[in-house]
Simulated assay, not measured.
Amino acid sequence: MQGMRLGTLLTTLAIALTCLTAAPTYAAPAPVDRPAVIEKVVIGHSVRHRPITAWHLGQPGKRKVLLIATMHGDEGKPRQILASLRDGRRIRGIDLWVVPVYNPDGLARGTRKNAHGVDLNRNFPYRWADLDGSYESGPRAGSEPETKAMMAFLRKIRPSRIISFHQPLYGVDTDTKDRAFSRRVARALHLPTKSFTCGGVCHGTMTGWFNHHARGSAVTVEYGAHPSRRQLTSAPPRLLRLFGARR
Protein backbone atom coordinates (compact mmCIF):
# COMPACT_ATOMS: atom_id res chain seq x y z
CA MET A 1 0.00 0.00 0.00
CA GLN A 2 2.78 2.40 0.93
CA GLY A 3 4.55 1.55 -2.35
CA MET A 4 1.39 2.38 -4.28
CA ARG A 5 1.03 5.74 -2.47
CA LEU A 6 4.69 6.57 -3.13
CA GLY A 7 4.27 5.70 -6.82
CA THR A 8 1.18 7.92 -7.07
CA LEU A 9 3.01 10.79 -5.36
CA LEU A 10 6.00 10.48 -7.70
CA THR A 11 3.71 10.44 -10.74
CA THR A 12 1.91 13.57 -9.53
CA LEU A 13 5.21 15.37 -8.97
CA ALA A 14 6.45 14.37 -12.42
CA ILE A 15 3.32 15.77 -14.07
CA ALA A 16 3.64 19.01 -12.12
CA LEU A 17 7.28 19.42 -13.11
CA THR A 18 6.43 18.76 -16.76
CA CYS A 19 3.76 21.46 -16.71
CA LEU A 20 6.13 23.94 -15.14
CA THR A 21 8.95 23.34 -17.61
CA ALA A 22 6.58 23.45 -20.60
CA ALA A 23 4.89 26.68 -19.52
CA PRO A 24 5.01 29.34 -22.25
CA THR A 25 6.75 32.65 -21.73
CA TYR A 26 3.65 34.63 -22.68
CA ALA A 27 2.07 37.19 -20.37
CA ALA A 28 5.30 38.17 -18.66
CA PRO A 29 4.78 41.36 -16.65
CA ALA A 30 5.64 44.57 -18.45
CA PRO A 31 8.84 46.32 -17.29
CA VAL A 32 7.95 49.26 -15.08
CA ASP A 33 10.25 51.60 -17.07
CA ARG A 34 8.39 50.89 -20.33
CA PRO A 35 4.83 52.20 -19.99
CA ALA A 36 3.98 51.29 -23.61
CA VAL A 37 4.59 47.58 -23.00
CA ILE A 38 1.71 45.27 -22.13
CA GLU A 39 3.73 42.07 -22.15
CA LYS A 40 7.12 40.73 -23.14
CA VAL A 41 7.13 37.44 -25.03
CA VAL A 42 10.05 35.19 -25.92
CA ILE A 43 8.72 33.56 -29.08
CA GLY A 44 11.71 31.23 -29.49
CA HIS A 45 15.48 31.05 -29.54
CA SER A 46 18.17 31.37 -32.17
CA VAL A 47 20.69 28.73 -33.16
CA ARG A 48 23.00 30.07 -30.42
CA HIS A 49 20.13 30.05 -27.92
CA ARG A 50 19.64 33.81 -27.87
CA PRO A 51 16.03 34.80 -27.13
CA ILE A 52 13.83 36.22 -29.90
CA THR A 53 11.66 38.73 -28.09
CA ALA A 54 8.31 40.23 -29.11
CA TRP A 55 6.88 43.22 -27.28
CA HIS A 56 3.14 43.75 -27.04
CA LEU A 57 2.05 47.38 -27.12
CA GLY A 58 -1.16 49.34 -27.53
CA GLN A 59 -4.71 48.17 -26.94
CA PRO A 60 -5.82 44.54 -27.38
CA GLY A 61 -9.01 44.30 -29.39
CA LYS A 62 -7.96 46.93 -31.89
CA ARG A 63 -6.46 46.24 -35.32
CA LYS A 64 -3.52 43.88 -34.81
CA VAL A 65 -0.25 44.93 -36.47
CA LEU A 66 3.21 43.37 -36.31
CA LEU A 67 6.48 45.17 -37.06
CA ILE A 68 9.65 43.09 -37.59
CA ALA A 69 13.26 44.23 -37.96
CA THR A 70 16.76 42.71 -38.18
CA MET A 71 15.77 39.59 -40.09
CA HIS A 72 19.23 40.04 -41.58
CA GLY A 73 21.88 40.72 -38.97
CA ASP A 74 23.68 43.34 -41.05
CA GLU A 75 20.48 45.38 -41.53
CA GLY A 76 20.07 46.55 -37.96
CA LYS A 77 19.32 50.27 -38.22
CA PRO A 78 15.50 50.01 -38.59
CA ARG A 79 15.27 48.21 -35.27
CA GLN A 80 15.64 51.68 -33.71
CA ILE A 81 12.16 52.51 -35.02
CA LEU A 82 10.64 49.56 -33.20
CA ALA A 83 12.66 50.21 -30.04
CA SER A 84 11.39 53.79 -30.02
CA LEU A 85 7.78 52.60 -30.12
CA ARG A 86 8.52 50.09 -27.35
CA ASP A 87 10.34 52.55 -25.11
CA GLY A 88 8.02 55.54 -25.51
CA ARG A 89 4.67 56.51 -24.07
CA ARG A 90 1.60 54.29 -24.04
CA ILE A 91 0.04 53.70 -27.46
CA ARG A 92 -3.70 53.87 -28.11
CA GLY A 93 -5.86 52.86 -31.05
CA ILE A 94 -3.89 49.83 -32.23
CA ASP A 95 -2.99 46.33 -31.02
CA LEU A 96 0.72 46.44 -31.84
CA TRP A 97 3.50 43.86 -31.63
CA VAL A 98 7.13 44.64 -32.37
CA VAL A 99 10.07 42.26 -32.86
CA PRO A 100 13.11 44.55 -33.05
CA VAL A 101 15.67 41.75 -33.47
CA TYR A 102 14.51 38.65 -35.31
CA ASN A 103 18.02 37.34 -36.05
CA PRO A 104 20.02 37.93 -32.84
CA ASP A 105 22.92 35.69 -33.89
CA GLY A 106 23.33 37.55 -37.17
CA LEU A 107 23.20 40.89 -35.37
CA ALA A 108 25.88 39.76 -32.90
CA ARG A 109 28.12 38.60 -35.78
CA GLY A 110 27.26 41.43 -38.16
CA THR A 111 26.19 38.96 -40.84
CA ARG A 112 23.12 38.65 -43.05
CA LYS A 113 22.59 35.00 -42.14
CA ASN A 114 21.93 33.16 -38.91
CA ALA A 115 24.56 31.07 -37.09
CA HIS A 116 23.91 28.13 -39.42
CA GLY A 117 24.79 30.33 -42.37
CA VAL A 118 21.17 30.44 -43.59
CA ASP A 119 19.34 33.48 -44.95
CA LEU A 120 16.17 33.44 -42.86
CA ASN A 121 14.28 35.31 -45.56
CA ARG A 122 14.82 32.39 -47.95
CA ASN A 123 13.94 29.65 -45.46
CA PHE A 124 10.14 29.90 -45.23
CA PRO A 125 8.06 27.09 -46.77
CA TYR A 126 6.54 29.05 -49.64
CA ARG A 127 8.17 28.77 -53.05
CA TRP A 128 11.26 27.54 -51.24
CA ALA A 129 14.21 26.62 -53.45
CA ASP A 130 17.63 25.17 -52.73
CA LEU A 131 19.72 28.33 -52.97
CA ASP A 132 23.42 28.77 -52.28
CA GLY A 133 25.78 31.69 -51.77
CA SER A 134 24.48 34.95 -50.30
CA TYR A 135 20.94 33.61 -50.27
CA GLU A 136 21.67 30.18 -48.78
CA SER A 137 18.19 28.84 -48.05
CA GLY A 138 19.08 26.00 -45.67
CA PRO A 139 18.88 22.21 -46.01
CA ARG A 140 15.08 22.33 -46.32
CA ALA A 141 12.17 24.72 -45.99
CA GLY A 142 11.53 25.83 -42.41
CA SER A 143 14.70 24.18 -41.13
CA GLU A 144 15.85 27.00 -38.85
CA PRO A 145 14.75 27.57 -35.24
CA GLU A 146 14.17 31.25 -35.97
CA THR A 147 11.86 30.38 -38.88
CA LYS A 148 9.89 27.89 -36.80
CA ALA A 149 9.52 30.40 -33.97
CA MET A 150 8.22 33.13 -36.27
CA MET A 151 5.74 30.86 -38.05
CA ALA A 152 4.33 29.65 -34.73
CA PHE A 153 4.10 33.22 -33.46
CA LEU A 154 2.30 34.45 -36.59
CA ARG A 155 -0.17 31.57 -36.39
CA LYS A 156 -0.83 32.44 -32.75
CA ILE A 157 -1.38 36.21 -32.97
CA ARG A 158 -2.73 36.35 -36.58
CA PRO A 159 -1.98 40.01 -37.37
CA SER A 160 -3.96 41.84 -40.04
CA ARG A 161 -0.84 43.72 -41.19
CA ILE A 162 2.90 43.05 -41.07
CA ILE A 163 5.68 45.45 -41.98
CA SER A 164 9.10 43.82 -42.31
CA PHE A 165 11.95 46.35 -42.19
CA HIS A 166 15.16 45.81 -44.16
CA GLN A 167 18.08 47.63 -45.80
CA PRO A 168 19.53 48.88 -48.16
CA LEU A 169 17.24 48.92 -51.25
CA TYR A 170 15.37 52.09 -50.22
CA GLY A 171 11.73 51.63 -51.05
CA VAL A 172 8.46 49.90 -50.24
CA ASP A 173 7.63 46.71 -52.12
CA THR A 174 4.54 46.84 -54.32
CA ASP A 175 4.97 43.29 -55.64
CA THR A 176 2.83 42.02 -52.80
CA LYS A 177 -0.68 41.02 -51.72
CA ASP A 178 -2.12 44.48 -51.01
CA ARG A 179 -0.55 47.09 -53.28
CA ALA A 180 -2.80 49.86 -51.99
CA PHE A 181 -1.48 49.26 -48.48
CA SER A 182 2.10 49.31 -49.79
CA ARG A 183 1.48 52.70 -51.37
CA ARG A 184 0.03 54.04 -48.13
CA VAL A 185 3.09 52.82 -46.23
CA ALA A 186 5.38 54.48 -48.78
CA ARG A 187 3.57 57.79 -48.46
CA ALA A 188 3.57 57.62 -44.67
CA LEU A 189 7.32 56.93 -44.48
CA HIS A 190 8.28 59.20 -47.40
CA LEU A 191 9.83 56.31 -49.32
CA PRO A 192 9.49 55.42 -53.01
CA THR A 193 7.46 52.45 -54.20
CA LYS A 194 9.45 49.68 -55.85
CA SER A 195 8.93 46.12 -57.04
CA PHE A 196 11.28 43.73 -55.26
CA THR A 197 11.07 40.66 -57.47
CA CYS A 198 14.47 39.17 -56.50
CA GLY A 199 15.32 38.91 -60.19
CA GLY A 200 12.29 36.76 -60.90
CA VAL A 201 10.79 34.92 -57.94
CA CYS A 202 11.47 35.64 -54.28
CA HIS A 203 11.90 32.15 -52.84
CA GLY A 204 11.10 31.31 -49.24
CA THR A 205 10.41 34.81 -47.92
CA MET A 206 8.50 35.53 -44.73
CA THR A 207 6.16 38.03 -46.42
CA GLY A 208 5.46 35.61 -49.26
CA TRP A 209 4.65 32.79 -46.83
CA PHE A 210 2.35 35.01 -44.75
CA ASN A 211 0.59 36.57 -47.74
CA HIS A 212 -0.10 33.11 -49.15
CA HIS A 213 -1.29 31.39 -45.98
CA ALA A 214 -2.90 34.15 -43.88
CA ARG A 215 -5.84 36.50 -44.32
CA GLY A 216 -3.73 39.52 -43.47
CA SER A 217 -1.09 41.15 -45.63
CA ALA A 218 2.63 41.71 -45.21
CA VAL A 219 4.90 44.22 -46.92
CA THR A 220 8.65 44.76 -47.06
CA VAL A 221 10.07 48.21 -46.30
CA GLU A 222 13.68 48.89 -47.23
CA TYR A 223 15.65 51.83 -45.90
CA GLY A 224 18.93 52.86 -47.45
CA ALA A 225 22.34 51.63 -46.35
CA HIS A 226 22.78 54.64 -44.06
CA PRO A 227 19.37 56.02 -43.02
CA SER A 228 19.54 59.43 -41.41
CA ARG A 229 18.67 60.03 -37.79
CA ARG A 230 15.73 62.12 -38.96
CA GLN A 231 14.36 59.23 -41.04
CA LEU A 232 14.52 56.88 -38.08
CA THR A 233 13.11 59.25 -35.47
CA SER A 234 10.27 60.48 -37.67
CA ALA A 235 9.11 56.96 -38.56
CA PRO A 236 7.37 55.96 -35.28
CA PRO A 237 4.78 58.79 -35.24
CA ARG A 238 4.22 58.37 -38.99
CA LEU A 239 3.54 54.66 -38.51
CA LEU A 240 1.07 55.36 -35.73
CA ARG A 241 -0.78 57.88 -37.88
CA LEU A 242 -0.85 55.37 -40.72
CA PHE A 243 -2.85 52.98 -38.55
CA GLY A 244 -4.98 55.65 -36.89
CA ALA A 245 -3.15 55.25 -33.57
CA ARG A 246 -1.63 57.74 -31.16
CA ARG A 247 0.38 58.02 -27.99
Rank of each mutant, 00 (worst) to 15 (best):
I81M: 11
E75P: 05
R5S: 10
L239G: 10
P51M: 03
H203N: 12
G44E: 08
Y223M: 02
A129Y: 00
G133Q: 01
Q80L: 13
F153R: 04
R183I: 07
I81R: 06
D130N: 13
V201C: 07
L17S: 14
K77Q: 10
G3D: 10
I43R: 05
Y102F: 14
N123C: 12
I81S: 04
H226N: 11
G76N: 13
M4P: 00
W128M: 04
L82Q: 09
T174R: 10
R229A: 13
V172M: 08
G106N: 06
K194G: 10
T174Y: 04
H49R: 12
A149F: 00
K62M: 15
R122S: 05
P125K: 02
T111C: 02
I91E: 04
R127M: 08
R155I: 06
G138I: 01
R86T: 04
H212Q: 15
I15R: 07
P145A: 05
A69F: 00
T53A: 14
T205F: 05
A188W: 08
I68H: 00
R109V: 04
Q2E: 09
A83Y: 10
Q80S: 04
V219F: 00
P78L: 08
R86W: 00
L191P: 13
R229W: 07
A115K: 07
S228A: 06
A54L: 12
G199H: 04
W55Q: 06
S234N: 15
T18D: 01
R158L: 11
V101D: 12
